[in-house]
């Protein structure tokens, strides 16, 4: 550190300027990228909606929303409210998915078998991957 200060004391202003700009640009770019990464992938819970195995929607549990999914098999309305998810409406014959209640924990799911639709909670944040976490649920 001392060494750096010493060197910095006798610089040639003209020579330093482009370096300072470059370093500043790099640091600012880095900060902006980090901020983006933190906001968009750095954790938080999501409701992944899958139709026949393919992810068709990914809703953050931080924002209240209502989404109607329409496939050739039928219609389901998924609601995110107060950081939890439930199946508000579905035109499936058994209606089991509507009675599955609210889910809010990683790995929990609402399954609509007739429509081949799954809503599953995912969590990207690292603090949730502790040793004691469950790998799979036996039903």
């Amino acid at each position: 550190m001392l060494c750096v200060v010493k060197i910095m004391k006798k610089p040639d202003i003209k020579k330093i300027k482009p370096d300072v700009i470059l370093i500043s640009v790099l640091i600012i770019t880095g900060l902006i990228i980090m901020l983006f990464v933190l906001i968009f992938s750095g954790g938080g819970r999501y409701a992944e909606i899958k139709s026949d195995g393919k992810i068709i929607e990914k809703l953050s549990l931080d924002t209240d929303t209502e989404k109607t999914i329409e496939t050739e098999l039928g219609k389901n309305t998924v609601v995110v409210e107060n950081s939890s998810v439930y199946m508000k409406d579905a035109d499936c014959p058994d209606g089991i998915c509507k009675n599955m209640g609210r889910i809010d924990k990683k790995g929990q799911s609402i399954i609509c078998l007739p429509h081949k639709l799954v809503v599953v909670i995912t969590d990207d944040s690292e603090e949730n991957t502790d040793e004691n976490s469950i790998d799979i649920i036996v039903k």
């Binding site: 976490s133 790998d135 649920i137 036996v138």
Partner: peptide
């Protein structure tokens, strides 16, 4: 119905949660 092959990629055992019959939907 769960079935596991070998151990987890990190070498530890798979942890399988058994559903509580009184709260089958609550993990």
């Amino acid at each position: 119905n769960v079935q596991c092959f070998g151990k987890k990629p990190d070498g530890s055992l798979w942890r399988c949660g058994i559903t509580d019959p009184d709260h089958p939907e609550d993990m």
